[in-house]
Amino acid sequence: MSPLLKDFLNKRIVVITTEGQCVCATLEGFDNSTNLLISQVKNRVSGEKIASSYVLRGNQVVCCGLLEDSANPELDLASLGVAPLKDTRNYVPNEHVVWQHVWAKKQQQTLHTSSDTNT
């Protein structure tokens, strides 16, 4: 049982997901695979309410931080001009073009070898 999240129970936390979403919520519960039960979910940037409670699957969690600003509870990030967070996927842009090349090369090679055997 991972006790690492125990200190965050029933406190306001910031959660970043693998999709690049950033929310602010109260941690109600968690388990071994970091599935999180959170409540009073708000968007971290705009402060807009998303849901009253929410189960976040563990594999979607990137990190969760303890909010400690009792002085300025929801600091106004909307006015700061925040860049959207990236997701955690490692994808190659225009991957199909790469594979098209590989395929074309392979075709050429097979053409060559078949013409070699014919002669």
Partner: peptide, 14 residues
């Protein structure tokens, strides 16, 4: 660029 964690000091990372 990423001020989302400005008021966070203690963080859990998966």
């Amino acid at each position: 660029k990423y001020p989302h964690l400005l008021s966070v000091r203690n963080i859990f990372i998966r």
